[in-house]
Amino acid sequence: MAKLDDLEIIESVRRGNVSDYSLLIDRYKHKAFSMIFRMLKNRMDAEEVLQDCFVKAYNNLKSFKGDSLFSTWFYRIVYNTTLSRIGMKKRQIEEMMLSIGEELDFEDPDADTSGRKKEEKELLNRVIEKLPPNYAAVINLFYLEEMSCEEISVILNTGVPNVKVLLHRSRNALKKLIKENNLEDELR
């Protein structure tokens, strides 16, 4: 059987084949979950939000006109639903959030004292764990979904320059950690 594209699946669901919605879920669930989990930093909450996103998308499927890609439309739901969840726990995560005017800076407390070189993967996880929600969203959409900054700006409802700022700061933060851990030796 030929692989159906998103629009064909949506048409089928609209015609009443509700079980076909599973095809769309399968297509987006892992990447959407990655984004939600990295924004929320909590697996249980991320699982709940992911469910909410797919139910919301289903209920609003009639309003999807096909003017944009389904992925863009769906990730807008994902981003906004996750932000709403964060809003509910704003006090708890307030300290994690950084304003747009600040540089990202992840101190590595045992960079010089441990005597052990951290692996690149370990540093990457350290940065990702600490990324504020909007940065995490940009990193996931850019590197996992391979979206352009223009597409991401539509999802985040912000300007392309803002998206680039978030992307570049995330890279710069990881670069700083790599440098602090003397991994530059491997570059030479």
Binding site: F33, S34, F37, R38, E120, K121, Y143, R171, I178, L183
Partner: peptide
């Protein structure tokens, strides 16, 4: 190198 690291970002499995 930081850019290449981000390209290796892992997918988290949905339940």
């Amino acid at each position: 190198k930081a850019h290449n690291s981000f390209q290796k970002i892992q997918i988290e499995e949905a339940p």
